[in-house]
């Protein structure tokens, strides 16, 4: 190694030159929670928080067939089926047989693999394009911090139905 190499100056200067070249260029980073770009870029395959879509009459599509709970590798879906209320019609106009009295997803267990969406024969469970932290940030009221206790992570049927108003596209069967 020559004296010049021993100074380590060429290495330093070369490195600095590459760095300096990038200073006038456009920034690649963005401020994650404040900058909404990260959410807008989500596509229709993104595996986020679940939702239970409604049929045209406004009733929950789910027929409590347990396919999603069976397919779930993390065993995070709890369903309790019951006879559907009078007047709930199928697509063909018959009285529906079953609906989920209890539909809970334990988000602490969920690994967001998307198998429930693939398994569902009725397209009655889909995913939104937002992650859990984003979900909590959107849902919490002033002065409240969601996600502080385990109870906050157990999403019941009504919460999952409410997720239908989340506009971002997530995983659905046709994607």
């Amino acid at each position: 190694m020559s004296f010049w190499d021993r100074l380590y100056l060429p290495g330093l200067i070369k490195g600095m030159l590459t760095t300096l070249k990038h200073i006038p260029k456009k920034k690649f980073t963005y401020q994650y929670p404040e900058d909404p770009r990260s959410v807008e870029e989500r596509n229709d395959r993104y595996r986020g928080v679940h939702k239970l879509p409604l049929d045209p009459e406004g009733n929950v599509k789910c027929v409590a067939c347990f396919m999603c709970a069976t397919a779930c590798p993390a065993d995070c879906i709890t369903i309790q089926g019951g006879p559907a209320p009078e007047g709930w019609k199928t697509k063909e106009g018959y009285q529906r047989e079953k609906y989920p009295e209890v539909f809970e997803i334990n988000m602490l267990r969920c690994i967001f693999c998307g198998y429930c969406v693939e398994a569902c024969p009725e397209d009655a469970i889909q995913m939104t394009g937002i992650t859990l932290p984003q979900y909590f940030r959107e849902r919490q009221t002033e002065g409240e911090v969601l996600g502080g206790s385990r109870k906050d992570f157990i999403f019941d049927r009504d919460m999952l139905i409410d997720n239908n108003d989340i506009p971002e596209q997530g995983l659905h069967p046709n994607s």
Partner: peptide
């Protein structure tokens, strides 16, 4: 910076950035 571009590609094709399945 460049790995991020790959992760975005993966997000487009499978819907996740790290646990692709």
């Amino acid at each position: 910076r460049d790995r991020e571009k790959i992760l975005l590609l993966f997000e487009k094709i499978c819907g996740a950035r790290l646990t692709y399945n």
